[in-house]
């Protein structure tokens, strides 16, 4: 009871009408309770169990052995490959996505092109996982349409030159299919937030277009650009289905490793698996905090 009274008293500047104050004090808590219970059961508990498991040995005693185990070459390599592919696709998707978004926003392009490409980006950023991997197998696999076309029509032998869809670069090309459109979707609002007056003011003060970009456009967009790319990084970092169905689990990614661990304890130490999984959460948490910090900053500027 006192709990609720305190909330009402400090609940901000809006005076509560008497009719609301009369309702039972526990009502709000009752309504929010199912949500909280659900979150505890299916979000906090599972995370906590992995966290705890990561610090236990097989008998349940506290140990740092699993954390130490994360720093063995095999697991470090998995993290390294995962980070490398996330970084590559985030930067590539980020750069191309920025130019595409800018091309769509800047004008000179008919409205219907812009809106249909935007819609397509919404679709493509959600079209991932197994079907996406298969679409790329039909395209760039050993007998994929593009592979065959390049070989027969242009005499370019992709696989002969070392390309392999089921490897790092193949996976990167495939990831780009959802990274690029995602970048377009998240960078478009900040680009639209660049005000025409800034460009005009800069020109008026004697700046050339490239000077405008160097001194104003790029610095103002930088937090959004970095933030978006970090988000893309996280997006690729947690990907599992696409990588699994493309490489059949042959590429050493952390997600793939966790998947194998769930299926059959390939690490021969369940607790090391928990530490591995929780390690991903830590990386993601760092990434998302940076993202939100950057986003807040750019909103500060762009909302002026």
């Amino acid at each position: 009871m006192s709990n609720n009274a305190r909330v009402v008293a400090s609940g901000g500047n809006r005076p509560k009408p008497p009719s609301i104050r009369k309702s039972p004090p526990s009502f709000a808590w009752l309504g929010v309770l199912p949500f909280l219970v659900f979150v505890v059961l299916f979000l906090f508990l599972p995370s906590l169990s992995l966290f705890v498991g990561g610090f236990q040995d097989a008998k349940g005693n506290f140990t740092l052995e699993n954390i130490r185990g994360l720093f063995t070459p095999f697991i470090l390599n998995a993290y390294w490959v995962t980070i490398k592919i996330s970084f590559t696709t985030a930067v590539m998707g980020g750069i191309v996505g920025f130019f595409l978004a800018y091309a769509l926003v800047a004008g000179g392009v008919p409205n219907w092109v812009r809106s249909s490409l935007m819609t397509f980006c919404g679709v493509a950023s959600n079209f991932a996982g197994v079907p996406l991997a298969q679409a790329f197998i039909f395209t760039l696999g050993r007998v994929g349409l593009l592979t065959v076309f390049l070989k027969e029509a242009l005499n370019i032998d992709l696989y002969g030159q070392g390309f392999n869809l089921y490897s790092f670069w193949g996976l990167s090309v495939t990831y780009l299919y959802f990274q690029l459109p995602l970048m377009v979707l998240i960078i478009t609002p900040p680009i639209e937030g660049l005000r025409r007056e800034w460009r005009e003011a800069a020109e008026n003060l004697g700046a050339t277009p490239s000077q405008y970009w160097w001194h104003i456009g790029i610095p103002v967009l930088m937090p959004s650009l970095l933030g978006s790319m970090i988000l893309l990084f996280g997006n690729a970092f947690g990907a599992y289905a696409t990588a699994l169905s493309l490489t059949g689990g042959l590429i050493n990614l952390v997600t793939i490793l966790i998947g194998s661990q769930i299926k059959g304890d390939v690490l021969h130490n369940p607790n090391l698996g928990y530490a591995l999984a929780f390690g991903m959460v830590v990386v993601m948490a760092v990434i998302m905090s940076i993202y939100y910090a950057l986003r807040r900053r750019s909103e500060y500027w762009l909302k002026q």
Partner: peptide, 13 residues
């Protein structure tokens, strides 16, 4: 020299 309705100050400077 131009002064704009929306000030148009560069927010990063």
């Amino acid at each position: 020299g131009m002064v704009f309705q929306s000030y148009a100050l560069f927010p990063n400077m």
